[in-house]
Amino acid sequence: MKKYLFIFKTEFINSLQYVKSFIVGSLSLILIIYIYLNLWNFLYSDPESLINGYSYTQMIWYILFTETLWSCIKGRKIVRDISTDVKNGNIAYQMNKPYNYINYILSKTFADFTFKLLILLPAAIVLGHILIGNIPNFNLLGCLLAIITGILGTMVNVLICISIGLLSFFMEDAAPIYWIYSKVILVIGTLFPIEFMPEIIQPVLKYSPIFAMNYGPAKLFVDFNYDFLIKVLISQVIYLIVFYIITNLVYKKGVKNINVNGG
């Protein structure tokens, strides 16, 4: 465990080198939120009304929360980096180091995520207060617990991204799979809560990884209650275990097929 903490620490130090460029790059979050603010403002003709159980303020805070988490993790980069490692054989050179590759990527990714979250989350909370006011039914402990579930949900997302990247062992290009995955996640759970989806698929979605990844934590953030927290945590633990096993299996199968010649 100590070595993974060290990897985390080292990558965190690395991320600090890019603090200025990250802040500049994150300004787009303001633009995105401003667009959604206006869009939902139009849809909520009466700000006091509820759409699918969400008030206008809840809806904006929901998107602010999911978009912040989304901006802190670059799934496309995770997939692309692993694919590149697999294709150019670099992954082979990581194999003769005494660490687990999956844990190595997880530690590195989480260091970067932590660095970005420490900047973006306070900024997003300030932005939300300026644009729409307080978080509905604000409860400090509830908010903190929702953020923790957000982190766990991101971990599920990262494990899925790593699995997609590792598919490069078996196929030419894993990018189209990630493209489909990212668009599904963006629409379901990130921009729109599950309640906005057709009723027929809602029960399925509530048992899907989307519940653990973005919908559950974001709903907790805008409407915290302990019963729901337990449900989210249970689904997160299950999906973390399932995807950790899947990712390791894909990796183990992949490295047996590794084909690095030349040099």
């Binding site: 100590k2 070595k3 060290f6 990897i7 080292t10 130090i13 690395n14 080198q17 005494p98 040099g263």
Partner: peptide, 29 residues
């Protein structure tokens, strides 16, 4: 064992050699 592949970098380029040694030392427990 130790390995050096002349065409592949194992060091973290933004870190100093000292920090790299500390990092790899930790990797080797």
């Amino acid at each position: 064992i130790g390995t050096v592949f002349g065409q592949k970098e194992q060091l973290w380029t933004h870190l100093t050699p000292y920090d790299n040694f500390k990092f790899f030392g930790a990797i080797y427990d």
